[in-house]
């Protein structure tokens, strides 16, 4: 009986059996399998040149480990990449934190009218992807009588703002002092700088999106695909840790426009605000506007219970400013 079945297993009954039929069949199987593998991998032909890291980029070290020369060549590489892709000569710098500075943001909810100018100014300043459009700031339209953000409307669309029955609450990265996103990053691609700004080394991020899951303020954005920006919209003033163009597959976020603010300018969202609802400055300077606000206004932080110690504060104008001394003081503080 075994004789009958032998042909079926002929090529397998000993370790070195090379009869012709078996050889042919094995050969065809191997060729077939190889063809199938190549076929399966064929989409890779469309991989962009930029998607395959150059040796230089592959070996580039973590931001904190790079010495001056290495940083210079990294900045130069970014320049070349921008030139190649958009035919623009950008100014790419590595703007470092200054000593004795800790930035905080304060936002006056009595003044915000929900015009979303900050949202768009931010996109323009920071070279975010336009297609799909990434935005760091989300403005919620809140019904009066609650600060529960789950009741806010993210997609309000009115011919004119503000609406009398609502107030408006812009939310962006809160630059937490005890930032959960920094804690969870497995490769230290994101960290908090000495001036309180949480940054990302876009060349170090592995794209696991753990930080995005960890953030209680939904402040992080991921490049699910290659960011598209028209050449005319590129902001050529770039810095390594903030608004240089990003690649697909990495995380990005608000950096308080560190390339501006570390040199004494105000963030783009503040400059564009038509009502002066946004205040920004150094909290270590007791005379700064933000220090005064923290001292004198009725300030609160969002989701204080998650314990991340935000550097982003909300406040209301007081109806009866304390400086007037009496409860009978009249007139609204404007």
């Amino acid at each position: 009986m075994t004789e009958d079945t032998k042909p079926e297993f002929a090529e397998v009954t000993s370790e070195r059996s090379f009869n012709r039929r078996g050889f042919l069949r094995n050969g065809l199987t191997v060729v077939g399998a190889m063809t199938a593998c190549v076929g399966a991998l064929s989409p890779l032909r469309e991989l962009d040149g930029d998607d395959i890291p150059s040796v230089e980029k592959f070996l580039q070290r973590h931001y904190k480990e790079m010495n001056g020369d290495e940083m210079a060549s990294a900045l130069d590489r970014i320049r070349r990449e921008v030139k190649k892709r958009w035919d623009i000569d950008p100014i790419v710098r590595d703007v470092r934190a200054k000593d004795g500075v800790e930035f905080v943001y304060a936002l006056n909810l009595s003044r915000c009218i929900g015009c979303r100018k900050c949202v768009h100014a931010c996109v323009e300043e920071n070279n975010q992807s336009r297609s799909p459009e990434l935005q760091y700031i989300r403005v919620l339209e809140m019904p009066r009588g609650t600060t529960d953000i789950e009741k806010g409307n993210h997609h309000y669309d009115r011919p004119t703002v503000p609406d009398d029955d609502h107030f408006y609450m812009p939310i962006q990265c809160h630059q937490c002092a005890d930032a959960p996103c920094v804690k969870v990053c497995p490769v230290e691609a994101t960290w908090t700088e000495s001036d309180g700004i949480t940054v990302i080394d876009y060349d170090w991020c592995i794209g696991c999106r753990y930080c995005e899951a960890a953030c209680p303020y939904w402040a992080r954005r991921f490049n699910y695909t290659k960011p598209e920006i028209p050449a005319a919209d590129i902001n050529p003033e770039m810095s390594y840790l903030s608004n240089r163009p990003r690649e697909k597959g990495v995380m990005e976020k608000c950096t308080f426009c560190l390339h501006r603010t570390r040199e004494g300018k105000m963030p783009a969202c503040l400059e564009v605000c038509p009502t002066g609802a946004r205040k920004f400055g150094n909290v270590l300077d007791p005379d700064s506007e933000v220090s005064q606000i923290l001292k004198n206004k009725r300030v609160f932080v969002l989701k204080e219970e998650v314990g991340t110690l935000p550097r982003f504060f909300y406040y209301f104008d007081e109806r009866y400013p304390r400086s007037e001394g009496t409860a009978e003081a009249t007139g609204e503080a404007k």
């Binding site: 592959f58 973590h62 490769v187 230290e188 592995i206």
Partner: peptide
Amino acid sequence: VDMGRVDRMHHMLLRFN
């Protein structure tokens, strides 16, 4: 497959948080 940048997997070895 969930990672955005598989080409940087070695960063795990270089800076492991």
